[in-house]
Amino acid sequence: MALLHVTSPHATSSQRTGALMRQVMLATLPGLAVLTWLFGWGTVINVIWAMLIAAAAEAAVLKARGKPVGLYLRDNSALVTAVLLALAIPPTAPWWLTLIGVGSAIILAKQLYGGLGMNPFNPAMVGYVLLLISFPVEMTRWLAPGAAPDLATSWQLFLDRYPGADALTGATPLDSFRTWAGDASALAAEPILQGRFAGLGWEWVNVAFLAGGLYLLWRRIITWHIPVAFLAGLGLCALPFWLYDPVRFASPLFHLFSGAAMFGAFFIATDPVSAATSRWGRLIYAALIGVLIWVIRSLGGYPDAVAFAVLLLNLAAPTIDYYTQPRTYGHDKPKRGTG
C-alpha cells in the first residue's frame, strides 16, 4: 500500500496565503473605483504598472537567491505591496516614480531582509517614504477632485510627457487645513474643505476604503483589533483638541475620513508581518499609530503622516510584543521578554 506517512493534523483549513492576499487586493477595489471616478485613470495605470514591476523584481531577486520562483510568487505578497503603494501615491505619478518605489519596496525592504515574513518594516510604506523624501515635488502633485483628466492625459502624465503637469495640481484637504489652520475665514473659503463631513471628494475615498475594510473583517482576513484601535486612537486623540480649538485643530471626523486614514487602518497597519502579534500588543500598536498620525498631522511637518507613523511603530512592535504576551492556560501571570 502506498500510504501517505505524514504528521498530524491531517485536516487543514482551506485558507491559503495566496488566497488571503487576493482577498486583500479585492477589498481595495471600492477605493480604487472612487479614486478613478475622482482623479481619472492615473491610479489604475499605476496599479497595473506597479504589479508588473513587483512581480518582475521579486522573481529576479528570488532567482538570484536560488529559491523556487513559482512557489514564492504564488503567495501574492509582492502584488499586494505593489497595489498598496500604487494606491498611496498620486495619480499623476510618472512611470519611473512607481518603478523606483516598488523596486525599493520589494528589493530593499522585503527581499534583502530575507523575503516574506522576515521584513521588520512595512515594504509599501518604506517605498512610499523613500519616494516622498526623494521626490517631494512629484509626490505632492495631487489633482483637484472632480476635474479628472481623461485617459490620454493620464497616459501622458504617466509617461512623464505632460508639460503642464503643475497646472493640474490641487491641494488635498489635509494640505489645505495645514495651510489655513487658525484662520477661520480662510478655512471656510477653501473649496476642498467643504465636503459633507470631511474633505471634498476625499471623504468618499475613505468611505470606500472603509467598506473594503469591513469586507475583510467579515471574511475574517483581518481581526478587529488593529483597525478599531487605529481609528479610536486617531479619533480620540483629535477629539479634545478639536473641542478646545476647532479652528486650529481639525475634527475627529475630518481626521478619520481624510488622507490615508481608512486606508491605513484596514490595509497598511494590518500587514501581519510588521505589526505586533499578541492581542493586546495589536491594540497598543494600532492606537499608538493613530495618536502619532494626529501628532504629525497637526504638529509636524508633513501633511499626511500614516507612512511615518506606521514605520515608527514597526520599530516598536517587538518591544510591544515583549510586554504583551498572553497568559498561558495553567499559569498565573503572563511572561515577559523572550527568556
Binding site: L116, G117, T223, V273, T277
Partner: peptide, 8 residues
C-alpha cells in the same frame, strides 16, 4: 511556506 506572522 514562510510564516507571514498573521497570528491566526
Amino acid at each position: 511556506q514562510p510564516c507571514i506572522r498573521c497570528g491566526a
